[in-house]
């Protein structure tokens, strides 16, 4: 089938402003948007710049705005998109080139919540045990692949780049509710700051955007509840 793509292009060397360019490619309806983009890059215009790696929705490198919604290009089927398929870089970050944005501020926020297990006890011989029930509390958040689809779909983040953002909050939830972790209080201090969980306005864009179907807003809500109950 013929597919029309409208891709936002920006070359920092030549362009003042991003602009759209249209391409027509031949695809199967069951191809993914990524296949179409790679066709453009491979056969029509080699300068088209995008990130991708696994092409199977695992690595989180090809998050972008597809027809106005943040999606992984490798997970979106051509047949489920209206034409022309409008492809833009994720909003809220500096564009490096075309569909590639500078993710450094995103990872900086991620690091700020200390996304690693903190446990001062000497490790036991085999493993730190945990019941299934204890695990369930943060199971959802472990699925995150750091694609930034959530954070860059969040209107609060667009307006205020200081906001920690949903992805970092999901990472915090993952450790705050982990029974093996000992830095719960410290983490709650970090995400309980003004630019942390309280900046979330429960708009639910993040939940809609997450390609891993993580209930992002719910995770943030759990953090807010935890902040509240530790003070009561």
């Amino acid at each position: 089938m013929k597919v029309e793509l409208k891709i936002q292009r920006f070359d920092p060397v030549k362009d003042q402003e991003p602009h759209f360019e249209t391409y027509a490619v031949d695809c199967e309806p069951t191809d993914r948007v990524l296949d179409a983009l790679l066709q453009v890059k491979g056969l029509m215009d080699g300068t088209l710049t995008l990130r991708k790696s696994c092409a199977h929705g695992v690595c989180g490198s090809d998050g972008m705005r597809i027809n106005g919604r943040n999606r992984l290009a490798c997970k979106e089927l051509i047949q489920s998109q209206e034409q022309p398929i409008v492809v833009e870089p994720m909003k809220g970050f500096k564009i490096v080139k075309d569909l590639v944005v500078d993710m450094e501020p995103f990872f900086e926020k991620f690091r700020a919540v200390k996304p690693y297990l903190i446990n001062e006890d000497p490790p036991p011989a085999k493993e730190r045990l945990q019941s299934e029930k204890q695990r369930e509390k943060f199971e959802d958040a472990t699925k995150c692949i750091l694609c930034a689809c959530c954070t860059t779909s969040c209107p609060t983040f667009w307006a205020d780049s200081e906001f920690l953002g949903p992805a970092a909050l999901v990472a915090a939830q993952r450790f705050i509710f982990d029974s093996r972790d000992q830095a719960k209080e410290e983490r709650l201090d970090i995400v309980g700051e003004k630019e942390g969980a309280w900046k979330c306005r429960t708009i639910f864009n993040c939940t809609d955007a997450c390609p891993r179907d993580i209930e992002v807003t719910k995770a943030i809500g759990e953090i807010k509840k935890e902040e509240l109950f530790r003070k009561l």
């Binding site: 201090d189 970090i190 942390g196 902040e227 003070k231």
Partner: peptide, 22 residues
């Protein structure tokens, strides 16, 4: 434990919590 360097360690905002609850 403190890894914030010269920056002050974060302290959760009680005001924002109260405002949220209110």
């Amino acid at each position: 434990m403190n890894s914030y360097g010269s920056r002050p360690a974060p302290t959760a905002s009680t005001f924002e919590l109260v405002a949220w609850l209110f």
